[in-house]
Design a protein around this nucleic acid. Structure first.
Lengths: 119, 119
DNA sequence: CGGAAGCGATTCGGAATCCGAAGCACTGAG
DNA sequence: CTCAGTGCTTCGGATTCCGAATCGCTTCCG
């Protein structure tokens, strides 16, 4: 499972268009979450694992190397992980998702309520 | 694998915070891509499959039911799939990713170039 | 009518991925 | 020396994904 790279064909897209590579990278489990948890501050391996609901260490390592390869993260001399400027901009690109998820939550509550009211 | 719902615990997050449910939903393979491909216009099952690099029909069906459950999609009387207003706003929330992926692509080209220059 | 083509959708065996518990090597504190 | 905490690896089993085949249905065309 190679790290997705814009320009090269990635799983799920023969073209390698940057967006498709990004969708592949972020479509792997925990990728988005890791970036999210590093949004304000460096974290070591285990603390990061804790914040990610104790995700499995093997997958965490896998995701970390992918994100390091992709230059979204770098490692401090004390081996903690941190977002690169590029990684931080990726986080910012994902911020609208927070607002949307709120809206989504409200929408589902609404429709759940009207379902119940039908009886 | 239940469809993630804000408020309920989802895989990868005991809290069920809306954002975490969203990260679970979008973290499943092809989810982002499907929304992306429906951004401007309805598509039937097989045409949609074509646009998604001929992804496997079983997974496509799985993702579609999840996105229907989550109210991001609805099905027209002729059984084509379309974004709901909520789904369209999800797409809009993902748009900054396009810009970012461009920047990412350039950054990787830059560092690939400087690597070569070291010899 | 007969048949070919396209559709949405399902099934199923094998491949890829993810999980989680255990353990290793190292470091600092007591 | 112990003990706890760290980054990280290994490995067997569970889950997920894949892809080809297939079904039933509709449409189109002779």
């Amino acid at each position: 499972m190679p790290t997705p790279e814009p320009g090269k064909p990635v799983r799920g897209s023969a073209t390698g268009r940057p967006l498709m590579a990004a969708l592949d990278l972020f479509g792997r489990r925990w990728s988005l979450r890791i970036i999210w948890e590093l949004r304000d501050g460096e974290l070591g391996f285990r603390p990061l694992q804790q914040r990610c609901d104790s995700m499995s260490s093997s997958v965490l390592r896998q995701r970390l190397t992918e994100l390091l390869d992709a230059r979204l993260l770098y490692q401090l001399p004390d081996s903690r992980y941190s977002l690169t400027p590029l990684g931080h901009r990726a986080y910012q690109a994902l911020r609208p998702l927070t607002r949307w998820s709120q809206e989504w939550s409200e929408e589902l509550l609404k429709s759940a309520g009207s379902e119940g009211a039908l009886h």
